[in-house]
Design a protein around this nucleic acid. Structure first.
Length: 426
DNA sequence: TCTGGGGTCCTAGGACCC
DNA sequence: TCTGGGGTCCTAGGACCC
């Protein structure tokens, strides 16, 4: 796959001569931050792996029957109006002929690692922000004297060789780079030259800036603030009273005055929490079903904790009754654990406080956090909980969990299930 | 036949301590 | 005749991101 011709958009007012000077790497003043975003990433990998799907609408997402949503739509599917986070039933209506797949996450991760390795090879300082996005620092003179624009072009060309494409935004800070990357997609390179950030940002709606979602957008609209230009002229103190620490930061970022640091992060950085959740095709209403679901989801979390070598002391139970009503409860454990028999029982203990028998539940989530904590030892003195006060039984149950991991590892994740797994329909 | 699943960060209120 | 105020920790919920 070749980079598209003519997709470079340089937002500036320099004349030709100035631009040539920049190509030699001496024209860029100040920091140069890039944001690389893979184009329709999951769908593109599917099209790479299934040549017969190329040029056709492909949707990676959940089943209609399971109340799923679209994860990624290929550009062909987008022409029908399909986009990420759209309920699958809507997408199916808009584009009945689309090719559907639930996705292959391990494969996306593998491709992601190869892309990130390319970026890391071009500049030593990168901050991976998700599976398909990374900031990188190409400030002239810091790691190389080369033009930042040339480095971006080369990253795009090398990613293309993998069979997928990316878009890049380049500017003096992260806010500008991120918004620029969305300007021209797919395969775009949008450069906001130093000094141009205020005029680049000013006409854009506030929601274009990451960190401003629909709730903040609504509150800003109430104040008559619709564009980043308007946001940039607000009194930081007034904004702090209304929006907390985020207020003044919004103003700085909207004005293009943010000073960003690219923090070296890769995907091996330790997570702060591990959680799984399941939405059910049909709401759960009985205590039996619900308890079985909590145990099942706890098992998913336990397997991942053990694979990552993490033990935590904080367990969270999450129940979603309907789209607007979600409740969570947390409990601290006596000792760090990675065993669902321990934290799963604690999660079941939280159930009583959150749920009244008969209330329909559409989603059950279980999370474990507190990975650098030794646990609430003192509190354990008062624990009546059998699994917590009988260390021998606890150890035996963990052996069972590890054995189950190994069976699933060898024979597939459906090879083994506990009795409670059969008590509800996922 | 009406919106997933994986995360992070911030805030507000209550408990508790001094 | 009586309840301030600061600090810290914990918990629940909300906003946001991809």
């Amino acid at each position: 796959m070749r980079p598209r011709e003519g997709a470079v958009v340089i937002l500036e007012s320099m004349d030709r001569q100035e631009r040539d000077k920049d190509s030699m790497g001496i024209g860029w003043q100040g920091p140069a931050i890039g944001l690389m975003d893979l184009d329709a990433f999951f769908a593109s990998v599917e099209q790479l792996d299934h040549p017969e799907w190329r040029g056709k609408p492909v949707i990676v997402g959940g089943d209609v029957e399971r109340r799923g949503v679209v994860s990624t739509a290929s550009y062909e599917a987008r022409t029908y109006g399909v986009h990420s986070a759209m309920p699958s039933y809507q997408a199916k209506r808009l584009c009945p002929n689309a090719i559907w797949t639930r996705g292959h996450y391990a494969r996306y991760q593998e491709m992601s690692r190869r892309v990130m390795a390319i970026v890391a090879d071009e500049t030593p300082l990168l901050e991976q922000v998700s599976i398909d996005e990374a900031f990188f620092d190409v400030t002239p003179g810091r790691y190389s004297r080369e033009s930042p624009i040339d480095i971006c072009r080369r990253i795009q060309a090398r990613v293309c060789e993998l069979g997928i494409t990316c878009s890049i935004g380049l500017g003096v800070n992260k806010t500008v780079a991120k918004i620029a990357s969305e300007r021209e997609k797919p395969r775009g390179l949008t450069v906001v030259l130093p000094g141009m950030e205020a005029s680049f940002l000013a006409p854009l709606p506030v929601k274009a800036m990451s960190g401003i979602g629909s709730a903040t957008e609504a509150r800003l609209t109430e104040l008559g603030i619709r564009t980043l230009g308007q946001l940039a002229t607000q009194d930081p103190q007034v904004m702090e009273r209304r929006f907390g620490v985020f207020g003044p930061r919004m103003v700085e970022r909207a004005a293009g005055r943010e000073h960003s640091l690219v923090r070296a992060i890769d995907d091996t950085e330790e997570a702060k929490s591990v959680s799984n959740e399941r939405t059910f095709a049909h709401d759960l209403t009985s205590a039996d079903e619900l308890r079985a679901a909590v145990r099942h989801v706890s098992g998913l979390v336990g397997t991942r904790l053990r694979a990552k070598g993490l033990t935590g002391t904080q367990v969270t139970l999450k129940l979603k009754m309907d789209i607007h009503h979600t409740h969570t409860a947390q409990r601290r454990l006596a000792h760090p654990t990675d065993d669902e028999h321990v934290f799963g029982e604690a999660a079941l203990g939280l159930l009583d406080g959150l749920w009244n028998e008969g209330t329909p539940v559409r989603l059950v989530g279980v999370g474990v956090s507190g990975f650098n904590d030794t646990g609430g030892e003192q509190l354990a003195l008062f624990s009546e909980d059998a699994t917590e006060s009988d260390p021998l039984a606890e150890k035996d149950l963990r052996k069972l969990s590890v054995a189950a991991d190994q069976v699933r590892e060898r024979f597939g994740k459906d090879a083994l299930s506990y009795g409670h797994d059969l008590r509800f329909r996922e």
